[in-house]
Design a protein around this nucleic acid. Structure first.
Lengths: 116, 116
DNA sequence: GGACTACTTTGATCAGCGTCGTACGATGGG
DNA sequence: CCCATCGTACGACGCTGATCAAAGTAGTCC
């Protein structure tokens, strides 16, 4: 018999109505976090924490994910040992119309202009 | 005869094509600077440095103006002893479409929701 | 159970930024 | 001229946030 499978690990998420513009702006002001958001937007699919391309260590990345989650920008959930990340694009759009889209678009523009 | 009037003091401004998304995001991530931008947007007219409502000292405000100017968000020019501030809304719009508008709108939404 | 993978937590460091008061510089009006 | 007004420059200070390595925890697979 499949073991109780230990209640799936859960993650706390704020309701978008509870996040402040300040939080979202701070979250999106960091280049590493913007890279995470951009990659999620580009991919158009949820991604595991380990599958992002960033120049920082894993533990630093954990912190950035926390910041993004607390700002209501991403949603996280466990799948086995992996932790998935999803953009809360629609919810943020309702809260701050056009904001996330503009930032993602701007980041894309720069990426195309400055081929790092 | 009106004295040469000493060449009008000038102020350096970056071309919007030279400012990075990082600069603009950092500029807009500070609440005091967002307040400045919001007040300029609301007023719809240029304002002197001294006519903004902020909770910080004058010298601190000077620093915020510098940051906004260097990020291409505002344009400054002297008028007598006063220094005027103008939103470079159209230019920023061309560089990062929708960004400034979304931030201003979001700030306005919060202001209406949280009557500080 | 044991090894492996995936992420987190902890603790430390370190740079940068926002803040202020004070002193300075420039303009314009009597 | 002198003074009032307006804003800038200069240190100084405190705090927050980004960063990392190392140790810890939670699932998975054989």
């Amino acid at each position: 018999m499949p073991r109780p499978r230990s209640a799936v690990r859960t993650v706390e998420h704020p309701d978008v109505s509870e996040v402040s513009l300040q939080q979202v702006m701070e979250a999106l002001a960091d280049p590493v976090r913007r890279a995470v958001v951009s990659q999620l937007a580009d991919r158009g699919a949820d991604m595991t924490c380990g599958s992002f391309e960033t120049p920082v260590s894993v533990s630093t990345l954990t912190h950035h994910f926390n910041t993004l989650r607390e700002a209501g920008v991403i949603r996280q959930y466990y799948v086995g040992t992996a932790k998935m990340n999803a953009l809360r694009a629609d919810e943020i759009e309702r809260r701050f119309p056009g904001l996330l889209a503009a930032v993602v678009a701007a980041a894309g523009t720069e990426a195309r202009t400055d081929p790092a």
